[in-house]
Structure formats: C-alpha cells, structure tokens
Design a protein around this nucleic acid. Sequence first.
DNA 1: ATGTCCACCTGCTGGC
DNA 2: TGCCAGCAGGTGGACA
Length: 271
Amino acid sequence: MPELPEVETVMRGLAPVWLGQAFSRITLNRADLRRPFPDGLGQRLTGATVIGCRRRAKYGLVDTDRGDTLIIHLGMSGRMRVDPEAIGKHDHVVFETGNGRTVAFNDARRFGSLDLVETAHADAHPLLASIGPEPLGPEFGVALLQRAFADRLAPAKALLLDQRVVAGLGNIYVCEALFRAGIHPARAGGTVATARLKALAEAVPVVLEEAIAAGGSSLRDHAAPDGTLGYFQKTFSVYGQEGEACPVCGTTVERIVQSGRSSFLCRKCQR
DNA sequence: ATGTCCACCTGCTGGC
DNA sequence: TGCCAGCAGGTGGACA
C-alpha cells in the first residue's frame, strides 16, 4: 500500500480530522511496532494541538504546538482508520482528538513505526537524514539521475528504489516509471542512455502525480465504509499485469525477480 | 563504497 | 473443507 502517493493521500485525509485539534487520548495497544514506541509518546502527545500534517518521502509528519513531530511510517501493511466502528485486531495505536474523532494506526505485519522528535530537528532524525530529494520537488531531474546512475553496475530498479537517490519510490512506481521511460529494470545504471534518463526524469513525477490524483479522487469513497485511508484501486501499465498485454505494443507483460522482489516489464518496450 | 541477501511479521490466494 | 506454498506496496543490518 504505502509508497509516496499513498502516504500523501493518507496525510491529506488526516489533515481535516486533526489540524487544529488537540489529542485527548492516546492508547497504545502494544509496546512496539518495528521498534519500541518512543518514551513518553502518549504523554508528549496528549493535550498537544496538531499544527501540521505533512509528508516527507514515505513518512507522515504530524507537528504539534509543543514543538514535537510525530513520524509515522506505514511499512507494508499500515493504514490509518478514521472513526472505525470498533477497535480491531491490529489497531496498535489509537488517537483521539477533542473533536470526538478517532484514528487507529492499523498494521498487520508491524513493519511500520512511530517516532517522536523535536520538530526543529526532524530533518536530522536518522530516519530522514540520509533520504534523497523529493521526486516532486525542484531538486529532482535528469541531472540528479545522471549523477546517481553514472558508472553504476546496480540495476536501474535498485537505484530508483534507493531512498538516498530519490525519496518515496517503491516497487510499484519504480516498475511503472521504468516502463514509461523504456528502461529494462535489470539494466545496469551506468549503461542507461541519456535520452532514457531524461524520459525517466519526466516519467517519475508523472506516475506519482497520477497516483495521487487517483487516491485523492477515491479518498471519499474509501473514507465511507470503515474510514480506512490509504487504499485505492488504480490500473497499472505493468505492475501486477503478468500475462496481460502491454498497453503500448501488446506484448505479454512478464515478471522477473530482482533481489527477491517482483519486477514487471514489457521486454519489447523496455531495453 | 558497492552490491546482494535475508530477516522482520501476518494475511490472503490459489493449487492440490 | 483443509493444508501448504508462494506472494505482498519497506526497511535495515549483515555479509562478500
């Protein structure tokens, strides 16, 4: 579920629920997720008013008027359930606010995490310190990709997944962006032609923006049933399309495994 | 430094 | 119906 567009969608969904509201109660239903919860998480948040809901890479950042920032990572299976009908099995942390709203951090696989840092030092937090530029920001472009890909033997896919190169891409959008740019995911970074890197620099923001638009448009639908934020259906060109026809040339989309993870590609469109 | 692999967890699906 | 293998959107640490 959570790559950059999904986290963006979640934070946009949380903003109207939380902004300007004080946390009235924080309930921890276990002692940890991927890591132990930070000391005093509940005490530091209770009574604090939310003054910011934003995103950096795949992290959601919630700023409070006490100068703290809650860092939310959804891992593989994390979701924020808004006003759930009941607290369920994997609702590990429950946030209640003064407006009577309830948000449950639900994460079956528990690869997610919560951290609490001083807002002023949030960027220096170990989780965020070595993260590369935002792909939707001004620093991202062909020059950055040229620097990152030059002389590298690692496959293009691995370089794009590397959060130090560019922030927020995951398995889905890397596959989609490489497809649009005509780059085979297994091609060594250093052998990608400049023209294709240029295409890639254009494709990355496009696939992300499209996904955000799709998430935003379906946000209302998904808020309705059980309030779960973060899931939306979108048809991908190649991701998950093994055996289907390439939307451009009709060649059968294939799946390969790189570093234990699936990549989907059209061998005719991507070289 | 670079590249690769595995572990961390639970749930779902599809084949037998 | 049951069981089991394989798969899942992400890190982060341990290797050679």
